[in-house]
Amino acid sequence: MDKKRVKQIFKSGIWDDNPVFRQVIGICSSLAVTNLLMSSLIMGLALTFVTAFSELTISIIRKFTPKHIRMVVQVLIISAFVIIVDIFLKAYYPEMSKALGPYVGLIITNCIIMGRCEAFAQSNPPISSFLDGIASGLGYTMVLLMIAFIRELMGFGSIFGIQLLGNWWTRWTIMVMPPSAFFIMGVIFWWARSKTEKKEEKKEGGKVTA
């Protein structure tokens, strides 16, 4: 695989086709876990792991999979990887497992994974599928960290749990609560879309590139 293709996959996953602000999928968990940077980072890494390995597995078996049951197979493989992440966190990172709570198990319902498996891994070779999973996961992680940065700084006065703002800072309670994620996400979408507005006009009709 040539370098140009790799670059294109990453550019598409992280910016041009970013799952959160371009495709507007995976919103639920972006709202739920972003009040602390650490939780967001772990959530992003977990999703990247699951997406990459699910895409890899699905791409490897794509030629033998009977077409009409492919979704069943995808769900099965994705859930297996999600359970692996859940067990791993419980065994080696119990505090984080507790902090993320039910959201680890809910990674399976994150549309990004199934979306990428169906749109990309079904029709591409294993290595590019694996890279596509990593790229999409990083795109998702990036948006999560952007939201969490603002929320944690204003809500707790800290970054990654390190207290930066002193007692003079009045903590914004709203930033700790889920609604603030809506506002911040809206602003980030607005900013990101205004950056890519010209491109959008060019490809009228909203063609989705895989």
Binding site: V72, L76, I77, I84, I87
Partner: peptide, 13 residues
């Protein structure tokens, strides 16, 4: 096919 995939993932988990 479904049985095989299920068996493999179940054993792995």
């Amino acid at each position: 096919f479904t049985i095989i995939v299920t068996a493999v993932t179940t054993f792995l988990l």
